[in-house]
Amino acid sequence: MTNKIQKAFSLNIFLFLFILSSCSKKMEAYSLDYSSDNSINSAENIKKIIEIFNADNLIKELFISAEKTINECKNLNSIKSFSIDIKELTTMKDTVELLKYIQKSNKNYLNDIISIIKSDLALQNEVRKKYSFVSKLTIENKRIIINKIYENYIVNKSIANNDIIKKSFMLTESDKCQDYLLKQNDRCDRNGTFGYFMCFLSGPAAPACVLTVIVTTAWCFEDAKEDYQECQKKKNI
């Protein structure tokens, strides 16, 4: 009986490795597919950042609007008084906090931003296949960009253009979608890998188990993609 079990396990190890190697390309294709999606999305976001922040006048308008926004919030005493939903409220609150920070800064922001964006794009081309790393780095770089703006700009005027603020909201929302997609993809990767190893425990049923893991993992990636698209749609609304 023990010999039979040993033989069954030996066969399973062979089948497991065979199926794993033949399916790894399929899984890699999924990862790369999302990689390219993320890269495109990151590139678009960087374009938006350039559009918004590279134009000196727009930046001035954004920062000009800061003071009035802050004053409005102060007049309302509590930020909860705004007649907007909680999601928007949080973004608004964050933005106001960020704008307050901008008020205390210096003006040499533009060169820093451009150099950071350029380095980010170069890194994307260099390590494009490692999607999660690139995307995380991009998000991190966006935060660096925003921090740089806060650190390096002074505001001393009154409000004018709400569209600029809306654009800054869009960037924040986009980060949320991307963060969520990355989390979902990581979860799918982790579950898929863990699933393969768990399949080894199922003895004679290992091949069937591996096939099921492939199906569920692929489905997981599809769900993540759909969630991401829905998030983007909501953001656009």
Binding site: N191, C199, S202, G203, A205, A208, C209, T212, V213, T216
Partner: peptide, 18 residues
């Protein structure tokens, strides 16, 4: 035991979808 393992192997991956 083999039936149980077969059931386990096929249904276990679906737990990841919970």
């Amino acid at each position: 035991s083999n039936w149980i393992l077969l059931f386990w192997g096929i249904t276990m991956p679906w737990l990841f979808r919970i």
